[in-house]
Simulated assay, not measured.
Amino acid sequence: MAESASNTASKKLIQIDVSSDSVCPWCFVGKKNLDKAIEASKDQYNFEIRWRPFFLDPSAPKEGVSKKEFYLQKYGNRYQGMFARMSEVFKGLGLEFDTAGLTGNSLDSHRLIHYTGKQAPEKQHTLVEELFIGYFTQGKFIGDREFLVETANKVGIEGAEEFLSDPNNGVTEVKEELAKYSKNITGVPNYTINGKVKLSGAQPPETFQSAFKAASA
């Protein structure tokens, strides 16, 4: 049954700015926990979530490279333990962590996330979910234009293919958001709730719920 306008209006608004990178597994874990907290709190609050860009590795190659080779070069043999740890964490979420496929620069995904935030802000959160699912559980390459367009179409974002076809579209805006929301951040995920409560890391749902309460006081 749909909520009445009065019930919706009586709820306090929780605005969440999430700094995240599309190739950050803990950002996906954090989103899953945030969603649980939102589901448990939806009778108390209305939510507005806005995804902001962050680059774990701005120098990552635009062309796709093997995930395993990339992380072996970056972390040495420690990457095997890291992958094993993420596999366990993802299992806890009912997901399978896919270590196959390619990784690389995530700029195009941030361009698409920004575009979605302007064109259909109510669909941005769902788009981010689908990008995470594709990259982390299906071996999709985050820099693959076809994957990005397919994801946009799946979520119902119009004009994404045309927007992404020009490599200059959205770049300035992504850089501006990076400077505004992620300038002083050293790691992600990072959350700013109602502009005053800040959290970092893949916090459990209960921590988010406490933050909602503090931010709405």
Rank of each mutant, 00 (worst) to 15 (best):
A100D: 12
A100Y: 02
A100W: 03
A100F: 02
G101M: 04
G101R: 01
L102C: 04
L102A: 08
L102W: 03
T103Y: 06
T103W: 05
N105K: 03
S106V: 01
L107M: 13
D108C: 14
D108I: 06
D108F: 13
S109W: 03
L112A: 09
I113H: 09
I113N: 13
H114C: 01
H114N: 05
Y115M: 09
Y115W: 05
T116M: 11
T116C: 13
G117D: 07
K118N: 06
E122I: 06
K123E: 04
Q124K: 06
Q124V: 11
T126L: 12
L127V: 08
L127A: 15
L127D: 07
E129L: 08
E129C: 04
E130S: 09
E130C: 11
E130V: 06
L131D: 00
F132T: 08
I133V: 10
G134Q: 03
F136P: 01
Q138F: 04
Q138G: 03
G139T: 11
G139I: 07
K140W: 06
K140H: 04
I142Q: 05
I142T: 12
I142D: 09
I142G: 02
G143T: 12
G143S: 07
D144S: 08
R145C: 15
F147D: 14
V149P: 03
V149I: 15
E150K: 13
E150Y: 04
T151S: 15
T151P: 06
T151N: 11
A152N: 13
A152I: 02
N153A: 14
K154E: 12
K154M: 14
E158A: 15
E158C: 06
E158H: 15
E162S: 13
E162H: 11
F163G: 02
L164V: 11
D166Q: 10
D166E: 06
P167S: 10
N168E: 13
N168V: 05
N168M: 10
N169E: 09
N169T: 12
G170W: 10
G170H: 04
V171R: 12
V171T: 06
T172L: 11
V174E: 10
K175G: 05
K175H: 06
K175F: 10
E176D: 15
E177G: 01
E177V: 01
L178T: 13
A179F: 06
K180N: 05
Y181V: 12
S182T: 07
S182H: 07
S182N: 05
K183V: 08
N184E: 14
N184C: 09
N184T: 14
I185V: 14
T186L: 09
T186A: 10
G187P: 08
G187C: 12
G187Q: 08
V188Y: 00
V188E: 00
P189E: 01
N190V: 08
N190H: 14
N190T: 06
Y191D: 02
T192R: 00
I193C: 05
N194P: 00
G195C: 00
K196R: 15
V197Y: 00
K198G: 03
K198T: 04
Q203F: 01
Q203T: 02
P205F: 14
E206F: 14
E206P: 04
E206A: 14
